[in-house]
Design a protein around this nucleic acid. Structure first.
Lengths: 224, 224
DNA sequence: TATATATGATAGTATTACTATCTTTGCTAA
DNA sequence: TTAGCAAAGATAGTAATACTATCATATATA
């Protein structure tokens, strides 16, 4: 049986839907590789075209510019993560356990999901850590937000926020705590890899330590 | 009496020390204005030169490229903030109060410091919020780190981390909690301004709410 | 007065970030 | 079977960016 997983993306993010053609899928596949390899600043459509074996003009038929492509792949990641979090927590009744499991999904690397052949989730996770925030740290964040480009990220945070409220309906900062979990899961990971003095995990360099830190932080914060 | 405050910067960050000449000081003054106005991606040495009334080549005599300049001004900011935090907390004996006051410095906007005529701290604070993380989110972060470019940031976090340990010597994650405070002080501020659904402060848009959230988070985390 | 230093003026290059146009390929509906 | 259309390939061109190089000039200092 062949599995496949399809995520519906905001149509304003692309000119032509990359999921519907071979070239489109290659653009996603190779851009994830290239952005990871070179970093977003050094990544260009020219290099991407060469890697795929097509021309620059070909890429521009799918994406207006490389920033839209970055938003596309980050939005895809958040949608995919939301799907995973919801799928694996919806049957859990204990809200504390739901939250704990969610934090684990946010703070832990994944293996490549074979149901999405044009996306390598393991590398994508690294991109989110190093480049993810560049999707919104721009002067046009307000316009991009009006176009709903960050909806997948917001939806995921909203779910975590609701789990927090289920644990403690009186907790005053469910959304900010949710974004703190999501952001710090990635930032602590980046610091652990590159600026270890900024964390307590420099020696072990193990994600499980980040997980422990986040759990400790969250469950103390929401304790009644 | 004329006050002045001088911060010694890492010499590898510049080709010629910008604090020592009028043009150099103008580069710092106008780059802060321009980066805030246009955002870092759209900021160029050409535009900066035009704003100052000098030539592109003139700027290149001080800074190798715009990324080094960004690191310079962010490093300056962290040094300045460390100076402020240390100055205003060293006389406090109660560690909890020291930590509380430090959080306030991290999470609150400042007025322009008149002792530094070539730096507008209020605008600089906004730049740190929107552009600060781009200083280290690069492929050359490891080399930059070896050159000690992020030392001011680390020093500040180390101080906060020590205050945390003074409050509770058994707390297991003092450094990660310190960076969480610093990072979230800025990220929550950005989200409050631009993506308010990600915070609990969207309506009031008030920094004092961020402060309350951070205090609540930190003091629950370190409670014995 | 000689000299070093900072700045100004100008020019030039490779790369980036696009836009435009024309051709070819391959599928589909008449 | 073919006409027509969409996707992709090929090629060219432009303005801006990110530099480097050189030569002249002003100013301070020894």
């Amino acid at each position: 049986m062949e599995l496949s997983l399809n995520i519906k993306m905001n149509e304003k993010l692309f000119l032509r839907n990359p999921e519907q053609t071979d070239l489109g899928k290659n653009i996603i596949l190779f851009s994830i590789q290239l952005i990871h390899e070179k970093g977003f600043e050094d990544f260009t459509f020219k290099k991407l075209a060469t890697a795929i074996g097509t021309t620059e003009a070909g890429i521009y038929r799918y994406f207006e510019n490389k920033h839209k492509l970055l938003i596309y792949i980050t939005a895809w990641y958040w949608s995919w993560l939301e799907y995973r979090v919801v799928t694996y927590t919806e049957n859990i009744t204990d809200p504390l356990e739901k939250l704990r499991k969610s934090i684990k999904f946010l703070a832990t690397s994944v293996e490549d999901d074979i149901r999405t052949s044009h996306v390598n989730e393991k590398i994508l996770h690294q991109i989110i850590i190093s480049e993810g925030s560049k999707a919104y740290l721009t002067k046009h964040v307000n316009e991009d937000n009006q176009d709903q480009f960050f909806k997948p990220y917001k939806d995921l945070c909203a779910i975590i926020g609701n789990y927090i409220l289920e644990c403690n309906p009186d907790y005053k900062y469910p959304r900010s705590l949710a974004t703190t979990i999501v952001e710090m899961a990635h930032i602590q990971n980046f610091f652990m890899q590159h600026l270890p003095a900024l964390t307590d995990f420099g020696k072990s360099k193990s994600e499980s330590n980040i997980l422990e830190f986040l759990e400790d932080l969250v469950f103390h914060a929401i304790k009644k």
